[in-house]
Amino acid sequence: MAEQAHAPVESLALREQFNTPEQQKESSAFGMWIFLVTEVMFFGGLFLAYTIYRNTYPVVFGMASTSLNAVIGALNTAVLLCSSFTMVLGVRAAQLGRRRALVIFLILTLLLGMVFLGVKAYEWNQKFVEHHIPGAHFHFEGAAEQGPAQLFFSLYFVMTGLHALHMVVGAGILSWLLYHAVRGRFTAEYMTPVDIAGLYWHFVDIIWIFLFPLLYLIDRHMR
């Protein structure tokens, strides 16, 4: 921030390539949204594959889907929604320049994210115990065809796995934010990283909002 006689002052909130801080903020948010659109297409391909195979093997997919624990799934959805709530309160705290509140809400969001991943790990472990991991030792009781059942669990692991990977990346981003929030880098004028990370965290939440009913719920009424 070397202030010279006529040189424009550059700050975190206003880099020299932008006209106004407002324009800089909008550019950042816009860039993040474009990235999220590519993410929609990324997960969209998996949702499409799931739609096609669920229609091809409706009976086996129904049985496999019902073998998942819907109560645990619902509770984990609630955990994730709570983490979005704490995240948005964190963003609000950053907007108002409240450093202490921002730190507290970032920690809470991180903890809830960890709880979600922990529950997910428990669920995956259950699949190991039940021999529902696609591969040589796969066995799904009651299904005449093991192939389509393996297909369901392959899609289950890829979709929930990629979602969990996004959560792990999100946890890394939150830790980075936390480090800088504690050091007081974010102010009411400059809190773009918090804002952008919030968009990412909520997006990962939205993916789960669709994964949960599609994987856990939609065939339950047939049992």
Binding site: A70, V71, G73, A74, T77, A78, L81, C82, S84, F212, P213, Y216, L217, I218, R220, H221
Partner: peptide, 13 residues
């Protein structure tokens, strides 16, 4: 959001 999560789980049965 929490209520809707409960509703979607309940309706599934």
């Amino acid at each position: 959001l929490l209520i809707l999560t409960g509703v979607t789980t309940g309706v599934a049965y």
